[in-house]
Write a protein that binds this DNA or RNA. Structure first.
Length: 1206
RNA sequence: GCUCGAGUGGUGGAAUUGGUAGACACGUUGGACUUAAAAUCCAAUGGGUAGUAAUGCCCGUACGGGUUCAAGUCCCGUCUCGAGUACCA
């Protein structure tokens, strides 16, 4: 029999699919469409591990299944290739992130010499049905030019709350022109100033732009941001976990910075409501709901008045302007329960209103709060602290004085940073009031809940409890409309209004990083200007280092070419360069500020291109720099240059010469372009300069066909005539290269770079920018004219099935919904949501390997520290470790062992020497991760231990049989704990190894067989042999001893039943994403068919199709062996036919009092009464009933028979 | 603390609306083949208990209650684990 050779067969079909583009999707088809998308990966240097393909396999199964079912399937893959790791790697090694990224995707050798397999090759080995013609990379300019375009769209939009949609800013402008801010209800940051149409029209352009900036959906704002000093960048809220950065775990501090923001808060309500219609897991929806954090309530103003404040006169402006404290509350119905108010310590009113008597205490408290990190504040929630300011606000309804406190339980960042404290209805307020009870400024708690005792704790339920002591609210309850009544009253007297607050903050959109999308933005008079989309992309500039500049500007501040030429619409060199002394571009160039900095060397610039000098002679990429330099050189000629130019200019020689005209990367002194003759004037020759001149001459002559002649300055000044004669002679001998001598490069002045050049934005976009719209790009991935065509989007609509991890719940999944809603409002897409259905695959955890070891330590009683003693360590097995853990190791260790241990290591010496002050103890510790690559059958060979730890520390091993020397042992048992797979934990398992050993089909089946897709599970190869065995059994089913063997005979009813049972099961399983169970039903089917010795084509052909979504390679091979020439991927899915499952008999479980005793085989088509009769007649039943009273009989046809006896 | 989810053999996990708990695998044990190993095949395998055996009985889905003829599944309470969130007024 032919052996199943997975390597050859899988390679063969992978090649076949690639060659024939089997999985290419078309953008128009009569078939129904299906769009299955995976969250695209970030291509890291560590490569794919077995966790990555889990989701891809699932989506691939669905895609292949849908193809069998007659769908036109879009199943693309790409790379989220901008991001931090490549940049960090670049900082360390100097390798350009673009190169790292390319290597990580396509394979190669990295700078540290590691061989990188490459994501693409790794994926290809698994046999995915991706349409690779649609591959995209977010870091490719072809892609990010549209990311930049969307940014411009956001900038050009504002949010109309009345229509509840985003609109173009031009509409807002025309409305301003016509009626000012009248009737405009826009989502903006704060209450903006209002103006009339006349006022608007009187604004200068600059003023108008400034006003509009407050309305745009992406805007510049000075806000408190999360600054991560270690990463040198700001972070969004979702990038911070437990007060530290998600990446790297670095501390994060609050800092005020001017940043680009995204007005996602405008969409909060829609983001919340539209969750309803999505087929996502409830937990993800819940996470998003919590993140959006809607709370309905009211804004209430508490005036600060002179009648309650003795020091009111000292408040200056604040007092004059009618100072008030604004608060947000979700319980305006409890307003009469306000006992005091609390401000966040950072609140701006604190310094103004504090009385002189309280000044000292307030200052001390503010300092103490400021000194505490975000983390400390979070960790220490229970401690109550606060200080009375001495000031009193006025209750807006009762007019009573309400004392104002500060306390750090009030957050500056939420609401207004101030609360009205209602101790009877809020636990924190209650605790605060109770803590400061009796102190100055803390009145007795006001209770407004009728018949409720609040002396011990607050009463928080929102129910029908009637409110009392509350004037017009008396007798009402939360349930019966007290809230609405309170808001109505507040609005009536102008002391407040109903308001909905969201926890969702506007997102910071700029990052101080290099490896991200550059903004299509430059600054003119300090105002941001968008670059016209037709000039996109604005490509990332080159920088010498991927670090911030000395003065703290982002890495793009290092670029020498990072200004926008508004007239010519291109990126040009920074204009602050001044004339370098000498010729051409010196590698050290002075800047106008007097500092000297390294420019990119000419060598670096040369790399950029191979422009050929013609009449447009300068190298395009550096033309602006060269032009600029040339112009300055012309302004400052040397004496000799001035003398010679006088003679050459204006065709005095009969030929047109130009002065300091850039050619390629050089600026020769004089050139006759039509004859390609260069005249160079040199100062005194220096040896190194001659070399350089020679090289340059060589290049100009050989590459571009110029002739270079040289004179010294002395020659020109002393004998101008001879020089001119020589030039004339040479130029006449030269052939004519160009006729039209006027067709020369426009001068720098003509280009207007000195009047139209502005600095570009130095920040880059965050990681989520590119991933927020990529699902649409796949629909039309190669479109060079627009982000995607209308037709393509209308055909594919949005994603039918999205598979990926749940860790993006508050990042990517929220931001992409936001962008899609914007695109929808602006008419760019027809859908309101990106992903109809989503499945979140669980993480596959790695098995990290460890040992336990006992380490001796000295306890220093004086200083209360433990001192590590260098050598001896005993590795113990897991059992002993568990017994010893947390106990006094010394006592539990056998005395002989200790003695032996101490004797052998002379530990007693150390002990004796210090024993007056120190005491010896032993600690049991877990080792660091041991690389699993060296682990065999749960053990590691001792020789490998030496590689990771100094042998000194690992001398002994202790298990039940006693203490042994490690170097006398062959291997040591390890213990394992599941952990997230990561390079640093040495627990990564690569799918390549599995493919090599067992094949891709086995890998695919096994990953599915591991358990439910959504569940996290540890990776353990133990069970893989079972799946591998299945593949072999499947192969065998189609073969006999000699070779391939399938008959055309009719299949047995049993075989047909097995087949159709499996069709139904697999179909249902795929529709329900229960992939693990269909693998087992395949196993059952193959086991049964093998037992039945089934060889019929009638069964085996459909079986191959059933298996093909899961194990496509073997299915294709069997399909071709069956004599089919086309790919199995287009074969129609077998149709389930009920009739094959119909049976004449059914095995009924017969139970007594609900307990199954035995089964009876009974006819299936039989009435309930007949069934009961037959069962009762059975002697086994009679036996059971003997001597008992039959109380009730339950007969469920097709299910069960149950007798109740007693 | 709050919100959501989950607890089933030695292990991963089945059990679609309440209806034969433990499918399918792994592992383990025994056996066949082999000089041996690997591979392959066969058998047993939730726990306890009685019996030479066929077979029978009891207990079992985290724990305690409940509803029901019947509960892993529904309800109430408790515990444990995981995820999210964290003074959100």
């Amino acid at each position: 029999m032919l052996l199943y050779d997975h390597k050859a067969i899988e390679a063969k079909w992978q090649k076949h699919w690639a060659t024939y583009k089997t999985f290419k999707a078309v953008n128009n088809s009569d078939q129904p469409k299906f769009y299955a998308l995976d969250m695209f990966p970030y291509p890291s240097g560590a490569g794919l591990h077995v966790g990555h393909p889990l989701g891809y396999i699932a989506s691939d199964i669905v895609s292949r299944y849908k193809r069998h079912k007659g769908f036109n399937v879009l199943h693309p893959m790409g790379y989220d290739s901008f991001g931090l790791p490549a940049e960090q790697y670049a900082i360390q090694t100097g390798q350009h992130p673009a190169e790292t990224t390319k290597t990580n995707i396509e394979g190669g050798i990295d700078k540290s010499g590691n061989k990188i397999a490459g994501y693409r090759k790794q994926m290809d080995r698994i046999g995915f049905s991706f349409d690779w013609d649609r591959e995209l990379r977010t870091s490719s300019p072809d892609y990010y030019k549209y990311t930049q375009e969307i940014f411009i769209l956001l900038f050009d939009s504002w949010y109309d709350k009345d229509a509840d949609k985003a609109r173009l800013i031009s509409e807002l402008e025309s409305r301003f022109r016509e009626s000012g801010t009248n009737n405009i209800n826009a989502a903006t940051d704060e209450d903006l100033r209002e103006f009339t149409a006349a006022e608007w029209n009187a604004f200068t352009d600059q003023e108008q732009q400034e006003v509009l900036l407050d309305y745009r959906l992406t805007f510049l704002a000075n806000t408190e941001v999360n600054w991560c000093p270690a990463l040198g960048t700001v972070l969004a809220n979702d990038e911070i976990v437990n007060g530290v950065s998600e990446r790297g775990g670095h501390p994060v501090v609050r800092k005020k910075m001017r940043q680009w923001m995204m007005r996602i808060s405008a969409f909060a309500e829609r983001l919340l409501n539209d969750l309803e219609g999505l087929d996502w897991s409830e937990s993800i929806k819940e996470i998003q709901r919590n993140w959006i954090g809607k709370s309905v309530g009211a804004m209430v103003s508490f005036p600060l008045e002179s009648k309650h404040n003795e020091n009111f006169s000292l408040w200056g402006n604040a007092a004059g302007n009618g100072a008030k404290i604004d608060v947000f509350t979700t319980r305006p119905d409890t307003i009469y329960g306000v006992t005091f108010m609390t401000l966040a310590p950072e609140h701006e009113l604190v310094d103004i209103i504090t009385t002189p008597a309280q000044k000292q205490a307030i200052e001390t408290y503010k300092k103490a709060t400021a000194a505490r990190s975000e983390r400390e504040r979070m960790a220490d929630v229970k401690t109550i602290s606060g200080v009375f300011t001495g000031a009193y606000a006025t209750h807006p309804l009762s007019g009573e004085a309400v004392p104002v406190w500060i306390g750090d339980y009030v957050l500056a960042g939420y609401g207004t940073g101030a609360v009205m404290a209602v101790p009877c209805g809020d636990e924190r307020d209650h605790a605060f009031a109770a803590y400061f009870e009796g102190q100055e400024g803390m009145p007795a708690i006001k209770n407004i809940f009728d018949g409720i005792d609040i002396s011990e704790e607050a009463y928080t339920p929102k129910d029908k409890t009637p409110i009392c002591n509350s004037d017009f609210l008396n007798g009402m309850s939360y349930k019966s409309g007290a809230m609405a009544a309170a808001i109505e009253k507040l609005e009536e007297i102008g002391a407040g209004k109903g308001k909905t607050n969201y926890r969702l903050r506007d997102a910071v959109f700029s990052r101080q990083r290099y490896w991200g999308e550059p903004f299509p933005v430059y600054y003119k008079d300090g105002l941001p200007q968008m670059i016209d989309p037709k000039h996109l992309p604005v490509e990332l500039p080159e920088v010498d280092e991927y670090l911030p500049t000395e003065d703290g500007a982002p890495p793009l501040g290092r670029a020498t070419h990072w200004h926008w030429d508004e007239k010519n619409n291109c990126v040009v060199a920074n204009p602050s360069l001044t004339l370098p002394k000498g010729k051409g571009i010196s590698e050290k160039t002075s800047f106008s500020d007097g500092k000297s900095k390294d420019l990119p060397s000419v060598k670096d610039l040369r790399r950029e291109s191979n422009a050929t000098p013609g009449y447009f002679t300068a190298k395009r990429e550096i033309a602006s720099t060269l032009l600029q330099l040339a112009q300055e050189m012309r302004k400052n000629p040397t004496e000799a240059e001035a003398v010679l130019w006088k003679e050459l200019k204006g065709k005095k020689t009969g030929f047109k010469f130009t002065q300091q005209h850039p050619i390629d990367e050089f600026i020769p002194d004089f050139v006759c372009l039509s004859r390609k003759l260069i005249v160079e004037l040199d100062g005194k020759y220096h040896e190194f300069q001659v070399d350089k001149d020679d090289q340059r001459t060589l290049k100009l002559e050989q590459k571009f066909g110029y002739k270079v002649i040289r004179f010294t300055n002395e020659e020109v000044i002393n004998d101008t005539k001879a020089v001119l004669l020589k030039i004339s002679e040479e130029v006449n001998q030269r052939p004519e290269f160009f006729k039209n001598e006027d067709e020369v490069l426009p001068s720098g002045k003509d280009l207007g770079w000195d009047q139209h050049i502005y600095p570009l934005e130095l920040n880059t976009m965050p990681g989520w920018a590119g991933s927020s719209w990529y699902m649409f790009r796949y629909m039309d991935a190669n479109n060079e004219n627009e982000m995607f065509s209308k037709e393509a989007q209308e055909y594919w609509e949005n994603v039918d099935l999205y598979i990926g991890g749940s860790e993006h719940a508050t990042g990517h999944l929220l931001y992409s919904r936001f962008w899609v809603k914007l695109l929808h409002d602006l008419g760019k897409v027809t859908v309101n949501e990106p992903f109809k259905k989503m499945i979140n695959q669980g993480m596959i955890l790695g098995e990290s390997a460890f040992v336990y070891m006992i380490k001796p330590k000295l306890i220093d009683f004086e200083n209360k520290v433990k001192i590590d003693l260098n050598p001896p360590t005993i590795i113990v097995n897991e059992k002993i470790a568990k017994e010893l853990f947390g106990s006094n190791v010394l006592k539990n260790l056998h005395p002989d062992v200790i003695k032996d241990f101490e004797r052998q290591y002379n530990l007693s010496l150390a002990y004796n020497k210090h024993h007056e002050k120190f005491e010896l103890c032993y600690e049991i510790l877990k080792s660091g991760n041991i690389p699993i690559s060296n682990v065999v059958n749960g053990e590691i060979r001792t020789e490998f231990l030496k590689d990771y730890y100094t042998t000194k520390n690992f001398h002994y091993f202790l298990d039940d049989s006693g203490l042994k020397k490690i170097n006398e042992l062959k291997s040591i048992p390890l213990f394992f704990e599941p952990e997230k797979m990561s390079k640093s934990k040495y627990n990564v398992v690569s799918p390549d190894d599995i493919c090599e050993q067992y094949g891709a089909d086995t890998l695919r089946l096994y990953e599915m067989f591991l358990g439910p897709l959504e569940q996290a599970k540890p990776w353990n190869t133990a069970g893989i042999t079972g799946v591998y065995g299945f593949i072999k059994k499947l192969w065998k089913l189609y073969h006999n001893d000699v070779g391939f063997s399938v008959s055309d005979e009719k299949a047995s009813p049993d075989s047909m039943k097995t087949l159709h049972k499996t069709i139904k099961k697999v179909q249902d399983d795929i529709e329900n994403f229960s992939f693990n169970t269909s693998v087992s039903s395949f196993m059952i089917a193959v086991n049964e068919l093998t037992a039945q010795k089934c060889t019929s084509r009638e069964v085996l052909e459909p079986l191959a199709i059933l298996v093909s979504p899961y194990a496509p390679h073997i299915a294709e091979e069997l399909w071709s062996l069956l004599g089919r020439h086309e790919s199995i991927s287009d074969a129609p899915f077998p149709v389930f036919e009920e009739e094959y499952l119909v049976e004449s008999n059914k095995t009924y479980p017969i139970s007594f009092n609900g307990k199954m005793k035995f089964t009876l085989n009974l006819p299936a088509a039989i009435s309930k009464d007949e069934l009961e009769k037959m069962v009762l007649a059975n002697e086994k039943v009679q036996e059971q009933l003997e001597g008992k009273q039959l109380r009730k009989t339950i007969v469920v046809p097709g299910k069960i028979v149950n007798f109740v006896v007693g």
